[in-house]
């Protein structure tokens, strides 16, 4: 079916809210230098200073401005989330296409690979690898990309294989279309909806993973990351500092995940014919 995703999203209440939530995040990330009142890497004053007019959320244990840390943390979260989502989706797509076009043996190998990867507890392996690689932003992007592609690949492969059997592809090849044409003009466009959903879900999962790793302290300590903030703050959990130091990054993580989840849910329900009661077509 031809659906305009943008319209679908805007029509869907959840989708609308999710879009607004995510847009705000993106704006904050882009405008971080202008929004942040202080340089979050610079010592501002007495560590663990409670909130004041100057430091709205106080200072952390090494005297950095917590609000500015939060604002810069948005950048890390989105950068990691979006990069991993894009790269892992690309891997998934490449494998799915290879499985569909490469013949039975290639497909079997790819399916096997996906199945094995799906059995493995991804997060535990991420921790294991991360311990040795002391990850910065780039390493964590590479690592999570390599670990997170399998679920997407499974769905995309199944979909690509079923698309391949569709008659309009047979029709195209009966007009003399080659594999390249079929991939670019039919398979990939037909996969767009699924790719979009996968991308959104991947951002959500990555944010989860990144926050978890940082919470365990497995992240470059010079980076500004919400998970890392919680990691440090949790050592001071029984002082009053948790109210302005621990809660805000936690809530922001939830905010981000929920924002993307809302978009994902809206997209999925517009894709699932069972859940789509009022189909809004465009093209008139």
């Amino acid at each position: 079916m031809h659906i305009n995703y943008w319209t679908e999203l805007k029509r869907n209440k959840f989708g609308r809210i999710g879009l607004i939530m995510v847009s705000i995040l993106v704006l904050v990330a882009l405008a971080a230098p202008f929004l942040a009142p202080h340089n979050p890497w610079v010592y501002q004053g007495q560590p663990l200073t409670p909130p004041s007019e100057e430091y709205i959320l106080g200072l952390n244990d090494i005297g950095q401005d917590i609000l500015s840390e939060l604002i810069y943390g948005t950048r890390t979260t989105l950068l990691v989330g979006v990069s991993v989502a894009v790269f892992s989706t690309l891997i998934s797509l490449a494998l799915a296409l290879a499985a569909a076009l490469g013949g039975r043996i290639v497909d079997r190998i790819i399916l096997r690979l996906i199945d094995i990867m799906l059995i493995l507890p991804v997060f535990l392996i991420a921790i294991l690898v991360a311990i040795y690689f002391k990850p910065g932003v780039v390493t964590i992007i590479i690592m999570l990309t390599l670990l997170l592609w399998p679920p997407g690949a499974r769905i995309l492969r199944a979909q690509t294989l079923s698309l391949k059997e569709r008659q309009h592809l047979t029709a195209a090849s009966s007009f003399g279309a080659g594999k390249g044409y079929i991939v670019y003009r039919h398979l990939i466009p037909d996969l767009y909806p699924l790719l979009t959903v996968n991308l959104i879900q991947m951002v959500r999962r990555t944010v989860f993973m990144e926050a978890g790793l940082a919470f365990l302290g497995i992240f470059d300590p010079t980076q500004k990351s919400w998970g890392l903030m919680i990691h440090y703050a949790s050592e001071f959990i029984f002082t009053g500092a948790w109210k302005w130091w621990l809660l805000p990054p936690g809530l922001l993580i939830s905010y981000t995940i929920i924002g993307f989840a809302l978009i994902g849910y809206a997209l999925e329900s517009s894709l699932d014919p069972r859940l789509r009661r009022n189909i809004h077509y465009v093209g008139h």
């Binding site: 079916m1 031809h2 569709r166 008659q167 309009h168 047979t170 029709a171 039919h186 466009p189 037909d190």
Partner: peptide
């Protein structure tokens, strides 16, 4: 010409 026109065209 395929049996079912609905399936023989891309709905996109």
């Amino acid at each position: 010409l395929f049996q079912n026109p609905q399936e023989a065209v891309s709905h996109r």
